[in-house]
């Protein structure tokens, strides 16, 4: 793969099966088997034949309606979900901040969770301990909340800590899924600042957001996912325009009708 690429996605398809019937329990499985019933499965095609190159130092925005496959795409780039077809080549260290927030343990303090989050993303204990102070400072929680259990946090504080961990891992590729909506205006400004910094260091950022202004402000290119396919790749303003029109009118632009 060419050296200037951070991520290369070749003809990627991701399908998974979901069980639509009952709860998946041994009891149900035995009951079904005794009645000779089959499990009703539904195949979800989350991503369909997607090809995409993301160069180092770029910020890519992904827009699309709910269920378009944005989070699936992010997870597959992070190596969490395996492709069904095609392949993904990633060059560099990945840091993720995906929709559900990090695996925080609510009984532990913010500081402990920072350490745990760093270890989970592959740092050694010394490395993360050296960074903990900087991360806590970046999160800038009020009144010593950083040493209180995470279950006492407001969702905004939770989001701030999670974001601070993700951006301070010095990742080569940062994947952010709806991660910028948590903080208040001042924290948002700070996080934009930090992301521009990461960019100027030639790190790559991929952002999924429903806040289209964020996409416009931060990204230098964007793609529009619709039902698992990439409808368009362009400058963010152009993509956002098309996408807004689609949201207004509810129909796809005429040149996409054959897709």
């Amino acid at each position: 793969m060419p050296e200037e690429l951070a991520v290369r996605i070749e003809d990627l398809s991701i399908k998974y099966k979901i069980n639509v019937d009952t709860k998946r329990t041994l009891k149900n499985a035995v009951m079904r088997a005794s009645k000779g019933e089959k499990v009703r499965m539904r195949t979800v095609e989350a991503i369909k034949h997607l090809t995409l190159d993301v160069p180092h130092g770029s910020v890519l925005g992904i827009v699309g309606a709910n269920g378009a496959g944005k989070s699936t795409l992010m997870r597959s780039i992070a190596g969490i979900l395996p492709p069904t077809e095609g392949r993904i080549i990633v060059n560099g260290k990945i840091s993720t901040l995906l929709a559900l927030g990090v695996g925080f343990n609510p009984a532990l303090s913010g500081r402990d969770n920072i350490i745990l989050g760093g270890l989970a993303s592959g740092l050694s204990k010394d490395e993360i301990e050296a960074k903990t102070e900087a991360i806590a400072e970046f999160a800038a929680l009020p009144d010593g909340f950083i040493d209180m259990p995470v279950r006492t946090y407001s969702s905004g504080m939770y989001g701030r800590v999670a974001f601070s961990v993700a951006v301070n891992m010095t990742p080569d590729i940062l994947l952010l899924d709806e991660a910028l909506s948590a903080g208040d205006a001042s924290f948002k400004e700070k996080s934009f600042q930090r992301m521009r910094e990461l960019c100027s260091e030639a790190r790559t950022i991929i952002i999924v957001s429903h806040a289209l202004a964020t996409i416009n402000e931060l990204c230098d290119s964007a793609i529009w996912l619709h039902k698992g396919s990439m409808l368009a790749k362009d400058k963010p303003e152009a993509i956002v325009d098309q996408y807004l029109k689609f949201l207004d009118v509810g129909t796809l632009p005429s040149n996409f009708e054959d897709m």
Partner: peptide, 18 residues
């Protein structure tokens, strides 16, 4: 653009499996 200063190439390939 070329990669950042502290960049260490770490190529990971994710492919289908069964």
């Amino acid at each position: 653009m070329s990669p950042s200063a502290d960049f260490q190439p770490k190529i990971q390939v994710f492919e289908p499996h069964r």
